[in-house]
Structures are given as C-alpha cells and as structure tokens.
Computed example of a mutant assay.
Amino acid sequence: MDLQVLRSFRAVAEGATVTEAAAAAHLTQPALSRALNRLESEVGAELLQRVGRVLRPTPAGRVFKEYVDTVLDGYDRGRRAVAEVVDPDTGVVSLAFLHTLGTWLVPRLVTGFRQRFAAVRFELHQADENGLAEHLLDSTADLIITGKDPGHPLITWRRLLVEPLWLAVPARHRLAQRRRVRLAEVAAEQFIVLKPGYGLRSVTETLCHQAGFSPLVGFEGEEVETLRGLVAAGLGVSLMPAAPEVTAAHETGPDLPVRYLALTDVRAARDIGVARLTARTLPPAARRFVDHALHATAGTGGAPRPA
C-alpha cells in the first residue's frame, strides 16, 4: 500500500477534488482514480462515493480515514525524529496556542528560541481552550500553550507563568483616573467579553461571580484586540491582559484610549502553561522548546505591571 495513495485518499476524504489531489501527488487524474480503486479493493469496501460532482467518504471510508490519519501522522513524526537525530539543530516545532498569547508571549518565546536554533521551523496554530486540547489529541500539534490545565488524563501540563489581568475601561470612564478599584464597582456595567469556549471568558465569569455578580454581556468577540477597541469606543468594560504597548512601556500614558486598573477584591490573574501528550515522545526540537520556555519564564509573574 503506497503512502502517497493514502495521502491522496485523505485529501479527497477531507474535501479535495480528485484533480486537486492528483496535482498534489504529481499524478494524472486517471492514474489517481485507478490507485484509489486499487485501495478500495485492498481494503475490501467502497471508501468514496460520488455526491454530485465530488467524492465523499462512505461510512467505511470515514472509519478507514481515522486509521489512515494515525498511520500518516506516525510516519511523519518518525521521519522528523530521524532527521533531528541526524542533525539535532534542525527540526520542526508544531505549536498551538491561545489567540490572546499571539500578541506577546508566543512571539517572544519563538524569537528567543530561534536565536539559538535558527534552523528549526515552526508550525503554528491558534485556537480557543477547547480546540487546543484537540490539537494534541489529533496529532496536529506536539505542544500547546494554554491558559489553564486542560485536565485531560492523557495530557501533561506545566505552568510557565501567571499573567495578571486588569479591568480595562475607556479613557473617559468615571473610574479612569483611579489606579485600583473593586470589580464589584462595575457590576451594573456592560462587559465586552470573548465567546464561550475561550479561556479568558471563563476567567471573567469566575472573577465576576467571586465579586458577587454575573457579568452583563454587551458583546462577545473572538479576539482581545477587538474587545480592546470596543472598550476604547466606550461600549463597555472588560477583563484582559494589558495592551502590548502598555506592557512594553511599563506605563499607561495619558494618550492611550484604554485605562488598565488593578483589582483589589479578586485575584485577577490566570495561569499560562505548556502541555503535551503524556505518552508521546517529543521530537528533540520540541523538547528543546519546552526547556527554553520554562527557562525564559522562570520566576516571572507575567506581563509588566501598568503604572
């Protein structure tokens, strides 16, 4: 059984046309069609059926694809591992991370790592908390950087740092000139939050409940920068990390449209950690990246505190 045929079968089962799969495999369309027919004969079942102008997996095809994914992912990981044994300074780090960490933590870690291992490549994915665990379980990532321990029996999580969270208010908000407030002081205001499934959303709800109220949701977004922009526009308040320009300058500055206030009645912070599948041996490059991340964040409490 040809691995390339399995790759073509997977591509077609995931929605590619036979023409597209054939081009990717450097085959003619008739040649790939014959190869797929031979694959069905070897398996002993119809794997693909025509629906309109495209092929879709049959029930047997969907079952078979799960095993094909395992075979191909294992083979690719094996090739990577061998390549890294031959040349330990090369390799690929397949990393998935929270959207909110793409503005500061992940770029810093990747940049610092590549200063030592310039030949290592990165495959990067973004997802919410729920999607990150799936990246590990379906082998699309070797590592994830997430806001909390996934709590999955197959996943090992290690804390990297504690990231402080702030109450973000518009520059003309009634509390904007304060440095510290109680979260309960904005209980009646609209909150700009991330959609359910995002770690920051669950942290926001937990902290509001600890302060004695349920947040009044005015908008649900998918990116912290969107939330920040809506807060600046005066549409509500939000719990979030300080903006990158704030943490870089160690101060809020009089001209910034959002003020970040420390909270005194709740512990406004979240854990950030790195996780991997417990039973899977990490490739050398991924192991080095974990060591680098742990060293780079050792002793830190998160982003610098706004003035």
Rank of each mutant, 00 (worst) to 15 (best):
P150I: 08
G102R: 01
P284I: 03
R121S: 13
T278D: 03
F113P: 14
S33T: 14
A16C: 13
H125F: 12
R121A: 10
L261F: 01
A303L: 07
E223N: 13
G102T: 05
A293G: 08
Y67T: 12
R62H: 08
F213Q: 11
W166V: 11
T252N: 10
G197M: 04
A176D: 06
R280S: 10
A16L: 08
T70C: 14
T28S: 09
T140P: 01
G52F: 04
P304L: 04
S8W: 00
H135A: 10
T103I: 09
A31P: 04
A176C: 06
G91S: 14
A11F: 04
R10S: 15
E185N: 14
G302R: 00
I155L: 05
A262R: 15
R159N: 06
F113C: 07
G147I: 09
H295C: 07
S202M: 02
V169E: 01
T204I: 02
T17L: 00
G52P: 15
R305E: 08
F122T: 12
L294I: 11
G212R: 01
E222W: 06
A232T: 10
T140N: 01
R305P: 03
R159Q: 15
P244R: 02
P30N: 02
A307N: 13
A35Y: 02
L105N: 08
R280C: 07
A83I: 08
L230T: 06
H173K: 02
D291E: 09
G61N: 06
R114M: 04
P170L: 05
T252S: 14
L39D: 00
V71T: 12
I272W: 00
G299S: 13
A141T: 06
V231W: 00
A81L: 13
V217R: 09
G61V: 07
A243E: 08
V193E: 05
G44L: 01
A11Y: 04
F113S: 12
A249N: 08
E185L: 09
G229F: 05
F117V: 08
L263C: 10
R267F: 11
T19V: 13
L194F: 11
V266Y: 00
V5T: 12
P304K: 02
W166F: 05
T247E: 04
E42W: 00
L256A: 14
R77K: 12
V86A: 10
A285P: 09
Q29P: 10
I155G: 09
G253V: 09
V43W: 00
P254F: 03
F213Y: 12
G78F: 03
R276N: 08
G131S: 05
L175F: 05
L95G: 11
D255E: 14
A298D: 15
P59H: 07
G253E: 10
L194V: 14
L183F: 10
D291F: 07
S139L: 11
P244H: 01
T156I: 11
D89C: 06
T17A: 01
R38K: 06
V54M: 13
A285E: 03
V63Y: 03
V54P: 12
V54D: 14
R276C: 13
G74E: 05
A133F: 03
V93T: 07
S214W: 10
D87S: 15
A242S: 09
V217H: 13
L105K: 04
V85W: 03
T278K: 03
